[in-house]
Each structure stands twice: as C-alpha cells, then as structure tokens.
C-alpha cells in the first residue's frame, strides 16, 4: 500500500502546487520591434539555430542573400533599445542561452549590436 499512499500524497501536492503558481526562475524574453517573428514562436524557440545555420550555408556557400532568416534582421528586432545589443544579462539571446547553459558562437565573429540610427547611415556620402 506504500505506493498507493505515495500516489495520493503526490496528487494532493500536485493539486496544491497548481493553485499556488510559485516563483519559478525564467529568462526574460522581450521582442522590441515588429508584430510577429519570421516564423511562429514555438517553431523559433525550437529551431532558430537551424534557420541561422541554414541561412549561413545559403549565403556563404551558395551566394544566395535573402533577409528573411538573416542574423542581422534577428538582431534588428530583438536588440534591447537601451544597449542596442542582443547580449548582456537580459539580452534577448543571452538570457535564454545562459539559462539553458548553451554557448552562442554567432558573436565571436558577428556583432551583437543593431544598426546605428538610420540618420547616421544617411549622412554617409
């Protein structure tokens, strides 16, 4: 009867737990620009790395430059307006990546910063 009692106990515990939604640590995820992402959110959470790597192969190996899945465009929407970056403690990329202990290779070569204000770009001759 040990397991039956344990089962009842855990059912009660589970019941209590659902009612008192506790303070479970979660990364902060904010998108600053745009209504929706280039793909559905659930898909992006699971497969964004595949898209970015596929885009790299298309661009670097085959010379096909599109913007839909480009890293630059990711950063444009997701960079924090304060820091202009997707890195930093609450940065869009870094918050989840450090939460899940996954290293990010992108930014050892690419910049994590969004473009300067467009006025600055226009000033160029």
């Amino acid at each position: 009867m040990f397991s039956l009692r344990a089962l009842t106990l855990t059912m009660v515990l589970a019941g209590l737990a659902t009612t008192a939604a506790g303070d479970v640590p979660r990364p902060e995820v904010k998108a600053y620009k745009g209504e929706t992402c280039v793909e559905e959110t659930g898909f992006m959470r699971r497969n964004h790395m595949e898209l970015i790597l596929h885009q790299r192969d298309e661009t670097m190996h085959r010379g096909i430059r599109t913007t839909k899945h480009s890293l630059k465009e990711c950063i444009e929407c997701h960079a924090d307006p304060q820091t202009r970056s997707v890195l930093g403690e609450n940065g869009f990329c870094q918050s989840c990546h450090s939460y899940a202990a996954v290293s990010i290779d992108c930014f050892s070569c690419h910049t994590p910063k969004a473009r300067e204000q467009s006025a600055a770009v226009e000033k160029r001759p």
């Binding site: 209590l16 737990a17 659902t18 008192a20 506790g22 303070d23 479970v24 640590p25």
Partner: peptide, 13 residues
C-alpha cells in the same frame, strides 16, 4: 527547464 525547476518548487509549469 522552467517545468523541471517548477517540479522542484512544487509549482507545475
């Protein structure tokens, strides 16, 4: 991970 941390805190995510 939020689900697993939730289990440890008796809060089902």
């Amino acid at each position: 991970k939020a689900y697993m941390l939730g289990l440890l805190r008796f809060s089902i995510q």
